[in-house]
């Protein structure tokens, strides 16, 4: 499968502070990659390095299977932090200025503005736009030049529910209709879960885990939760009837990914072998809990 972005052991230091710590991630063509982390985890720093706004201290960035970086970046559109627009200019004038960088025609500008829902703003200046409209204008500017890869840094920050739905739908349409690959950062995992096809969790500059949406759903699905007094003995007993990789121990509590209808059987077997069972029940992890566990709070 062709990759749009691949990083190898990427490090970034500001003074003595390591803000990107050995990050190796992969984004495949067609993905909507949800980049998840707390504020200050290093999401924006990584994106800035990919876009050439900051230079890595160490490591390699590979775009579009190894194309020269300055040429590859012509195929990327981005919205980093707040949208960078001329507040005294209309949506069309903003687009017209940046169109010189991408050889985009007037027709393409009008089509993009219609696509993002800003086609009828007329002479209204960007300074008079709502936050959602400015975000959409930022995305419109990022769409100039027919990019194959869009990097969006917290695009739904500060938006009301209507704005969030608009941006979310726009991302899905662009991915579906134009095949654009996305890297979207956010700390709102619930919103991201509605669009992302894969995730990267980052904490304190380190990439903790990369996982597909399907794998994440499985990890957050229902499982058997057993609180008891002797977890080690319980695990050795349970592994006789359940595959070992389905049994997880976390903070003294056992979780079993299978056997949701065998809780009685587990309870009986453990009690019979002298293990005191305090509680046995079905449990599912919310995405937020998974996120908090991964990035640490």
């Amino acid at each position: 499968m062709s990759t749009v972005l691949k990083t190898y052991n990427l490090n970034k230091k500001y003074g003595s502070k390591l803000v990107s710590n050995n990050i190796s991630l992969t984004i495949n063509r067609g993905d909507i990659y949800g980049f998840v982390g707390k504020n200050g985890a290093g999401k924006t720093t990584l994106m800035r390095q990919v876009l050439g706004m900051a230079f890595p201290t160490d490591g390699i960035i590979q775009l579009f299977d190894g194309e020269p970086l300055d040429l590859a970046r012509r195929k990327i559109g981005s919205l980093i932090e707040a949208p960078a627009v001329y507040k005294k200019c209309s949506a069309y004038e903003n687009m017209k200025r940046f169109a010189f960088l991408c050889n985009s025609s007037d027709k393409q500008i009008k089509d993009i503005l219609d696509y993002v829902g800003l086609g009828n703003t007329g002479n209204k200046t960007a300074g008079q736009f709502s936050l959602g409209m400015r975000q959409r204008l930022g995305i419109a500017i990022a769409l100039l030049g027919n990019p194959e890869f869009l990097i969006l840094d917290e695009p739904i920050n500060g938006l009301d529910p209507t704005g969030i739905i608009e941006i979310r739908d726009l991302i899905l349409r662009l991915n579906r209709d134009k095949g654009i690959t996305f890297m979207v950062s956010s700390h709102l995992l619930e919103e991201l879960s509605k669009i992302a096809t894969c995730y990267g969790f980052i904490s304190e500059g380190r990439l903790i885990e990369e996982v597909t949406a399907k794998e994440l759903a499985e990890k957050c699905s229902d499982r058997v939760k057993i609180e008891l007094d002797n977890p080690e003995k319980a695990i050795s007993l349970l592994s006789n009837s359940v595959p070992q990789d389905m049994i997880h121990l976390h903070e003294g509590i056992i979780y079993i990914d299978t056997g949701l209808d065998r809780t009685g059987e587990f309870n009986k077997m453990l009690v019979k072998n002298g293990v005191t069972v305090k509680q046995i029940c079905l449990h599912s992890i919310k995405l937020e809990d998974y996120f908090l566990r991964k990035v640490g709070v």
Partner: peptide, 14 residues
Amino acid sequence: ENEILKNVISKGYS
């Protein structure tokens, strides 16, 4: 003030 530079830099210009 409008941080316009990032739009240009991200297109591969130094």
